[in-house]
Amino acid sequence: MINFLSTLIYGLIVVMFLLGFYGIMTKNNLIKKLIAMNIMQISIIFFFITLGLKLDATIPVELPGVVNVDAYINPLPHALMLTAIVVSLSTTGVALALMIRIKNFLNTIEEDEILRRMEE
């Protein structure tokens, strides 16, 4: 059961990543592209978190009397993912700022429309 579940999770992560990638490639609206990009980034965050998964273990705060390492989950993936979330957040921020400028310049955020207006 556990095996099946973990395989399922990894499978879902890959599906999520590809969904995001698909969205970036195919969507016409820049906001949708951005959402797809976020989905893709989050899939990797899930992946990291899943790597840190350990059954029958607790949070990595030392409990009195429990010295066995197996009793704690690995805190590193979570710490890394906090950073990754910050990175993802700032990417989104930059992307939104760029989008506002595109909207100001060209008055649209539809990709085909942008290309058409840039031709003019």
């Binding site: 970036i24 951005l34 990009m37 893709m40 930059v94 760029l98 989008m99 595109i102 060209l106 840039m118």
Partner: peptide, 16 residues
Amino acid sequence: PRGTVAAFKYLLIGTV
């Protein structure tokens, strides 16, 4: 403007 659009395109691909 063109730079901004190029930047956005690069942002998406670069993030991938």
